[in-house]
Computed example of a mutant assay.
Amino acid sequence: MGLFGTKEAKEQRRTGIAAKVPRHSSGWTQLLKELKQQEGLRILDFGATSSTNINFVTSLGHSIYTVGLIDEAADPKWTLQSQLFEQPAFDTENFLKENLEFGERNFDVVLLWDTVAYLPSHLVGPVVERICSVMAPGGRLLGFFPVKPEGEFSRFHLREDDQVDMQKAGSYSLQTILTTRQIENLFASFTAYKFFLAKDNLREVLVTR
């Protein structure tokens, strides 16, 4: 049975909305403890707007800012046509300015989820570098990384327990699968990281700025 099994599939067909499927997350469990111990944190949440996440975060006394990159990265407006390039180039500089420019904001927590896996490979490094630049010292980042070329792009909704709810969020294909060493290299400018083993095809990492 797939992730969206019989019961969930029936509900999706009935409502036209993808069902939410719970998934245990050791990274979220640890991060939630920290969120409950502090107040007034700024949280950057990657993915489509989730009223669940907004209500959950604000109920803990924090603020939340949501940004979705996957839909935006697929927009052809970022393709540069030029005789200087054999292949069309991607306008990375303006993409970052429009989607990851936060003024004077610095974030204490970043919920990156599985965004990296669905970004074009040429965007992965620049996006993580920009995220690092807008995080406060000691800030925490939670990322999910597929270990196999399987799965579906999902929106993750926060819960009070040791789980997050996954909800299919589009028909996007995996773009980037990273090994543990590649993930370590990706976050080389951060001060520390901790990996969590999972029973499914997602590797979790909690990174400290």
Rank of each mutant, 00 (worst) to 15 (best):
64 I>R: 06
72 E>N: 04
65 Y>H: 09
63 S>D: 14
57 V>H: 03
62 H>Y: 04
82 S>H: 10
54 I>H: 07
56 F>E: 04
82 S>A: 12
85 F>K: 07
56 F>Y: 12
77 K>E: 05
76 P>I: 14
72 E>F: 03
81 Q>N: 15
58 T>Y: 02
79 T>G: 00
77 K>F: 02
53 N>C: 13
73 A>K: 03
60 L>S: 11
56 F>V: 12
66 T>V: 11
85 F>P: 05
85 F>Y: 15
74 A>F: 01
73 A>M: 04
54 I>P: 00
59 S>I: 13
81 Q>A: 13
55 N>S: 15
85 F>L: 07
63 S>A: 15
61 G>C: 13
80 L>E: 03
77 K>G: 07
55 N>L: 15
71 D>C: 05
77 K>I: 05
53 N>R: 09
69 L>C: 08
61 G>F: 03
74 A>S: 10
82 S>N: 13
82 S>K: 10
69 L>S: 07
85 F>G: 06
74 A>R: 04
61 G>E: 01
83 Q>P: 08
58 T>K: 04
62 H>T: 13
79 T>M: 01
55 N>G: 11
80 L>A: 04
74 A>G: 03
56 F>G: 03
57 V>T: 10
60 L>W: 00
56 F>Q: 10
59 S>N: 12
52 T>N: 12
62 H>A: 12
53 N>L: 08
57 V>Q: 06
85 F>V: 13
54 I>D: 04
85 F>N: 14
54 I>G: 06
77 K>Q: 04
61 G>H: 02
59 S>D: 11
52 T>F: 02
71 D>Y: 00
78 W>V: 06
69 L>T: 02
61 G>V: 13
